Simulated scan of single mutants.
Amino acid sequence: MPSILGKEIGPIGYGLMGLTWRPDPISQDKAFEALKAALKNGMNFWNGGEFYGPPEYNSLVLLERYFEKYPEDADKVVLSIKGAVGHDARHPDGSPEGVRASLDNCIALLKGRKKIDIFESARRDPNTPMDVTFSVLEKEYVQTGKIGGIGLSEVKASTIREAAKLTKVVAVESELSLFSTDPLDNGIAATCAELKIPLVAYSPMSRGLLTGQFKSVSDIPEQSFLRHFPRFQPETFPVNLELAKQIEALASKKGCSLPQLALNWIIALQKRSDMPTIVPIPGATLVSRIEENSKIVDITEAEFAEIDATLNKVKVEGARYPPTIPTDG
């Protein structure tokens, strides 16, 4: 079993974004059912965000209410929270004032019901040196016991190396899926392996493309932010949908679902000697989906090869993000 900060976690974690950050928020009761189901199925590494929803109902607000009702679950969960990017997630602020404001708000919203194990600035602030950001986090929050450790989110390999010289990095969060394999080629995974830093794979279902829920562009809700993403445009979506169908055919041949194949492909990457610990964090709101996502199935080398051949035959169309969303190069 993988571990972070010396705490054992399940091989598959749980992403909280969809519980509060969506055009049609689910009820709090349904969110509680989802959180309970995740924990019951061994998905005890939870990843949320200060900006996952409006200030009055984001991940922290939901978690405070959940742990108020189920205080016995607090110690079972390893909690990672992203912040310091504003409420719209587009204004990275790693300044001392910005980091303090974000983290103090996150801690206050939890009302002491759960300690934040990992805090990540969701994007690197190009205007603030990392040593300035980390000095505040390390001295004022880690050393005082307010948080467990410091993580990185959406950074390139050189940033990971730079950060590791300045502070202890306990996790690196990066987009990784069958449709976003960049970390395997751009040095991110290799750097994490070398430095023995766990890699948290977000969007392992490629924002729903690998769930089977989309059959055409019209299946994307009009108000969904996905309509602004390059891979969901009328000219790119049909190609990506066709690729998803081909991967789904491989899953059917294996006797598992498309999401199960997508998640277990990520887990199976760790069999390779040059890979770090990798923990995918799928998000789901239905208990049935959470139970489906939690299942472990073995991916053989022959199946790896077949998947690679499919991905080489039909390439993913479109960038991961629209240009309005900042990334670290």
Rank of each mutant, 00 (worst) to 15 (best):
I296E: 00
G42V: 07
G86R: 14
L109Y: 08
P280M: 07
G255Q: 02
E317I: 07
R65A: 13
A38N: 10
K69G: 14
P282Y: 00
I118H: 03
K111R: 15
A193P: 05
S218D: 15
N44A: 12
A122T: 07
Q260H: 00
E72Y: 12
L176D: 07
T277R: 08
A262C: 12
L63W: 14
I247D: 02
D131R: 04
E291C: 09
L166G: 06
P280G: 08
L209R: 10
S158E: 13
T300L: 14
H91D: 05
T20D: 03
V142T: 11
S27N: 09
I26T: 04
S27C: 11
I247G: 04
D117Q: 05
G283T: 07
V136M: 03
S216Y: 03
P25R: 06
G98Q: 03
Q223D: 13
I296P: 00
L103C: 06
L261D: 00
S252V: 00
D117T: 03
K111V: 06
V136G: 03
Y14H: 11
L209M: 12
A305G: 12
T324N: 08
E140Q: 08
I325V: 15
I281V: 15
G187A: 10
D131Q: 07
E248F: 00
M1V: 13
A37S: 14
L62R: 06
P198C: 09
L109F: 06
A190K: 15
P326K: 15
A302Q: 13
S273T: 12
S153G: 04
F51Y: 12
F214K: 06
G145S: 13
F119G: 04
E248N: 02
V200T: 14
L110A: 05
S3P: 00
V239I: 14
A122D: 05
L35E: 05
A164R: 13
L261N: 00
R100Q: 10
R65L: 10
R272C: 04
S153I: 08
E175W: 00
N58S: 08
S218Y: 11
L176W: 01
I325A: 06
L195R: 01
Y70C: 08
Q233R: 14
K139D: 15
G255N: 04
I116R: 02
V200Q: 08
K165C: 04
Y70N: 13
R320Y: 04
Y321A: 10
M130K: 02
M17C: 09
G48S: 11
C192S: 09
R207H: 08
G6V: 09
V172K: 04
A164S: 15
L199K: 03
G13Y: 01
D104H: 03
F304I: 09
E235C: 07
A309T: 09
A89L: 13
G83Y: 04
K30W: 04
L311G: 06
D117G: 01
A163E: 07
D298R: 01
E56H: 15
I4Y: 02
K40I: 06
L166R: 11
E235H: 13
M1F: 07
P54N: 15
E248Q: 01
